[in-house]
């Protein structure tokens, strides 16, 4: 990991995380819990990295965790051990980055971009490189598969991040989401 960077978190840019699109039931409850736990771990001085929509999602998550009455949501299926460990060290010094991006949007027939047989392999490769802390992907294929990689591409410029802790890795609506964190 670069000496200049202390903590980095990746969350997906799904608009379902925004309060203006809330329903009576949360379709991304597990993802939201993981994302909020990870964002809370970043502390208060955070640089947002992502495209315009992604930045809105990131800003919204940061606003939620900054509230005085913020309590981590804990759906029973979420790994609360990791979330708790992260929160216990919240606010460590050094620059922190919240990167907003996600994998393909063509994982199933009902995915936003419909099924593309290349999507699963693309997401597997991108996911593995993210876990290793050095994202690599085919930019043209990413565009064809509707992956939101603008923020992820800039993640590489932060230097060698080291191995990621993965809090969420799933494609519940045909779009590949990750919540990952790097740093001490």
């Amino acid at each position: 990991m670069s000496a200049a960077v202390s903590r980095v978190v990746l969350v997906p840019g799904t608009l379902a995380l925004l309060p203006e699109y809330a329903g009576r039931e949360d379709p991304v409850a597990e993802l939201r819990a993981a994302a909020l736990a990870a964002v809370a771990w970043l502390g208060s001085d955070v640089t947002l990295v992502g495209d315009e929509q992604g930045a809105r999602v990131g800003a919204s998550l940061l606003e939620v965790v900054s509230r005085q009455d913020f309590v981590l949501p804990q759906p029973p299926t979420v790994s609360t051990t990791l979330a708790s460990a992260r929160c216990s060290t919240s606010g460590a010094g050094g620059p922190a980055y919240l990167v907003v991006g996600n994998g393909s949007a063509k994982r199933t027939d009902k995915a936003p971009g419909a099924f593309d047989e290349r999507a699963e392999a693309f997401d597997a490769g991108l996911g593995a490189s993210l876990r290793a802390g050095w994202p690599e992907f085919d930019a043209r294929l990413a565009e064809e598969l509707w992956a939101s990689v603008e923020g992820i591409a800039r993640l590489g410029s932060l230097g060698d991040l080291g191995e990621a802790q993965v809090d969420y890795d799933d494609a519940p609506y045909g779009v590949q989401y990750w919540v990952m964190g790097w740093g001490a």
């Binding site: 379902a16 699109y21 329903g23 009576r24 039931e25 949360d26 936003p112 609506y173 045909g174 779009v175």
Partner: peptide, 12 residues
């Protein structure tokens, strides 16, 4: 006056 029960279409 009431939120949709569960909305994900187009928001994924």
């Amino acid at each position: 006056r009431l939120l949709p029960k569960r909305a994900i279409r187009g928001l994924q």
